[in-house]
Design a protein around this nucleic acid. Sequence first.
DNA 1: TATTTTACCTGACTTATGTCAGATGAACTC
DNA 2: GAGTTCATCTGACATAAGTCAGGTAAAATA
Lengths: 299, 299
Amino acid sequence: MPANLPPPDAVARVRRFNRAITRAVGALNTSFLDRGRPLGAARVLNAIGQGRSDLGEIRAYLGLDSGLMSRLLRGLEAEGLVATAADAQDSRRRVVHLTPAGAAEFAEYERLSDAQAAGILATHPDPGALLAAMDLIGSALGRDRITLEVCDPRSPEALRCLQAYYAELAARLPHSFDVSLSCDPQAEAMMAPRGAFLVAMSDGLPLGCVGLKGTDAGYAEIKRLWVAPAARGLGLARRLMDGAEAAAQGLGIALLRLDTNSALPEAIALYRATGWTEIARFNDDPYPDVFFEKRLAQA
Amino acid sequence: MPANLPPPDAVARVRRFNRAITRAVGALNTSFLDRGRPLGAARVLNAIGQGRSDLGEIRAYLGLDSGLMSRLLRGLEAEGLVATAADAQDSRRRVVHLTPAGAAEFAEYERLSDAQAAGILATHPDPGALLAAMDLIGSALGRDRITLEVCDPRSPEALRCLQAYYAELAARLPHSFDVSLSCDPQAEAMMAPRGAFLVAMSDGLPLGCVGLKGTDAGYAEIKRLWVAPAARGLGLARRLMDGAEAAAQGLGIALLRLDTNSALPEAIALYRATGWTEIARFNDDPYPDVFFEKRLAQA
DNA sequence: TATTTTACCTGACTTATGTCAGATGAACTC
DNA sequence: GAGTTCATCTGACATAAGTCAGGTAAAATA
């Protein structure tokens, strides 16, 4: 990809964007205050509502001092929104959960956030373009917060990726693409202990995936490598492949294979650059026309 | 324009964007704190550095209480960064300006901001796409902060707009477009008292323009109506036209005319929707092929 | 000229947030 | 089982930010 030179007013435009979002974030935050709770307490309630229960984890996530965390939590307890208990395994740790009243309050914050988001979309003439721009910027700003997670290939996050993957294949391959023809995986082959399915998550949004599919033929296959358009160029495909290889090593797999199509040159370039060697066709699948193999060092 | 239905995960994507920018704004703000001054004081210093000198104006701009403002100012004075004096006309008011030390400190904040902006651009594989996305979002979030300003048509803001306008005409008109052929305006005809040139500004970025060009033939012409691609659909063209008509009324002009090209259907639709009537060709310009007129109520 | 309004200042508060030095009790290590 | 490490809590303190009730002097108004 050629390095596009930024235009001369580039810095001014980024700074104008910064001013606009600073103002927008201020508005977002003050709207939370309308529920009569300081922002810190609202953030803790939100973290618990998202399913975080370990106190230390919440503290790390929000970047709070232990004393401050303790006080905020006591405040929420006094309001009757959360309840804490000692961890069953390690009674130094505390676990927190929402009471029914807390769950209702959390739902109210969620409703507020959803309404705000919908409001931004509703006033714009082209929500699709706005969303694409938001995805692009969200990925750029949050690139070092993208995490790889092991998922069930039937989970909603995985399905979102796979759907986009199939749609893109259909658009890019010369003949129309029908997933049922393509040696469709049993989900179990892409789950421990036979394989794995990794999804790259950025703040709850799935941005890419890769499948490691165990076979009975002495090797595992890499399948369904995909990166969202908004996140391309950030090195995510490589991270996903590294993650898949690490998962394979963890499962004691020594040999990987994959098939791909010559209509996907970026993927092929990546494979060549990361130690894969082209081999002869190893299956009868009609769509792939290029085949690779990589031998892994034993863990 | 068809109303694009947003995809089902639209709200989740907006909220993910919100989380990403909230985090980015936090990082931006904490970096300002590295200069050892609380955010409030830094914001006041910044407002003064931007050229605001009237104390009340700064207070309104930053949304500060008068007591708080006063205290922040005393702090900056104690640091030797600003100096205040009574206003010459109305000695209840105070005017503030930077001392040399204050100017140096302000420049340092500017350098920090520029470096941050450049840093965001530098790490992205496609700065052009990132900037386009930022412009789009900046315009969407700041749409109610877009102001119309009367400018000299030779000012840098005006020239940025005109350059983009000519580039777009060249791209959209079937024959190549040469500005020298097109009855190029004397700047004076687009300035008071003969006419006006309006620029739509959003946080320092020009997003659109329109010229009101006086003639000696008993009417004024609307020229060079342009809106930046990132700001289209927000009703800006209409605001610019309204502004131009108001300026005409202020100058005692009773009749407006304009010429345009059938390759610009959005513009023509706007004219038809806002009280313009199509008339016969009234000049020999080679590019326009559609002509309009509008009679104004006297102010 | 007397009264009211305006722009700013001052002092006394409150709240949110953050920091730090122990205290407590549980878990781990030798 | 004694010492150490760890997670959390508590109290004391600091700072940033905001609010509010007067106070002062100049300007506007009657």
